[in-house]
Amino acid sequence: MTTPAPYRVVTRTVEAPDVATLVLEPAGDPLPPFSPGQFAMLYAFGVGDIPVSVCAVDGHRLTHTIRAVGAVSSALHGSRTGGTVGVRGPFGTGWGLDHAAGRDLLVIAGGIGLAPLRPVVLAALAAPERHGRLNVLVGARVPGDLLYASETDAWRERGARVLVTVDRPDARWNGDVGVVTTLLGRAAFTPSDTTAFVCGPEVMIRATARDLVDRGLDADRVRVSLERTMHCGVGHCGHCQLGPLLLCRDGPVVTWAEARSLLRVREL
């Protein structure tokens, strides 16, 4: 078992009423570098730890977006600048952006699923010559839940096609209304030469991945991030099994080709 390395909270940004983004800096020795798609076990002193995907890596600094749901995430969400958070990791597979070299990119996020995908967007923007067109499709419940709202314009300016839709518009919303898959018709990509990265609730992942395959994407080029309970992060506790996979080790990012048959089995 690894032990948590203390990291100091450098900044805390409120993203939505129950969502905050923490930028963390090592208080002692830094952990090995994280790749986009990998996760950390974030530890709140005396409360416990939960898996949280990294949503930006900047040198030894780690950024994590946390939604307050239970005791641990509420404690982490409530961390103050200057406070200490424990970090174990990096764990799991990454998004594998390298495998998408030269292809069009579809980054498709539902809800807080944009957090694990943000480093894909940032990495793709940082090296535009490595791939084709970058599309970022985002679905949220209400306009106030949209993450990184202050950044998305900058993503557009740097060449990404960013399309955003909400389930429930408010009076001030003048953007799209509908599920994220309806944005696919307006994304710029050549299906036979595209890699998709999908993250969101499992139902959204299934519907999106099927739609992508219908539109001509190879199931091997649809990469999805799956969710199961994780306690240890190191493949020893057995909780995150999905059939043959230990998701903390063999996931959370897997191809739709691998995931499809597993997600068809109920209660697997």
């Binding site: 939960i50 995907s53 994590h64 307050a68 239970g70 995430s73 898959t181 969101g200 609730p201």
Partner: peptide, 28 residues
Amino acid sequence: RLRACRIRLLDLYRPTDTGRASAGGEPR
């Protein structure tokens, strides 16, 4: 549109669901 509409009916991003453990979910 019907498929999309049905998925919206599920209200997948409602606050009681994190959407995902790997982005701030909770094992328990």
